[in-house]
Amino acid sequence: MNRLPAALAAAVLLLGAAGCSPEPARVPPAASAPAPAAPTPTFAEVHRGDTESVVKLHRFDPRARAVVVEPTVFLQGPDFCAAFHLPGTDPRCDRAWATEDSRVKVTLPVSADAELLSIRDGSPECLDDRTGAGTCRWPASALAGRVSADEGGLLVRLTTKDGTATRIAEVYVP
């Protein structure tokens, strides 16, 4: 039983001889360490919960009340470069807007009373000043026709509730 205290005393002597002390080491102030980089934006998980985000609308089927969307990151050029830590010389920094696609397509149900909204070719009375999204009613057949004509996907501001599309508003892109 006397061995444990003797062994502990020997360890303290060895640590002391090695330059270690029982006192905690002093850590330099955090200001000398570089600040961690801000996280890059993530894609909205539109298939669950309540969300509002810009997505590419690839298909709209009013009869089946379903959409196929691709989540994107949609930012003004300078904000895009800051968010993705790109140098100011990157050409996307000078654009009015830039996107990063998720390359993931999601099929969602559409609420029977979903709002479908158009910008009507950039008409000022059909634009929300804050979001740049459409505010004028859009017939389901017109939206379906517009989406099928746009091979790259139509940028829309999508609102979901419990993973169901409740609002689809075309986004104005200058």
Rank of each mutant, 00 (worst) to 15 (best):
P139H: 05
P139T: 07
H85F: 08
S102R: 03
S118V: 12
T160K: 04
G152Q: 06
P124N: 04
K105V: 13
L158Q: 01
R146A: 15
A165T: 06
E125D: 14
P139N: 07
F74M: 10
D101H: 12
A82F: 10
R103E: 14
A133M: 06
G153M: 08
A142W: 02
D113R: 10
A133Y: 04
C136D: 01
R146I: 03
E100R: 14
P109V: 03
L127D: 00
T159R: 10
L117G: 04
P109M: 08
C126V: 08
E151M: 06
S111Y: 02
V104A: 14
K161W: 12
S148G: 01
I168K: 01
A144N: 00
T99I: 15
G134K: 00
L127R: 00
D113S: 15
A142Y: 04
P87A: 07
A83C: 06
P78C: 10
P109D: 13
V147R: 01
C126R: 00
T72C: 15
R130A: 15
F74Y: 15
K105Q: 14
L86E: 06
W97Y: 13
P124I: 14
R120M: 14
P78T: 08
A149T: 03
L143K: 00
G152V: 00
G163I: 06
S148A: 14
L158F: 10
T72A: 13
D79A: 15
D150G: 02
S123T: 12
L155D: 00
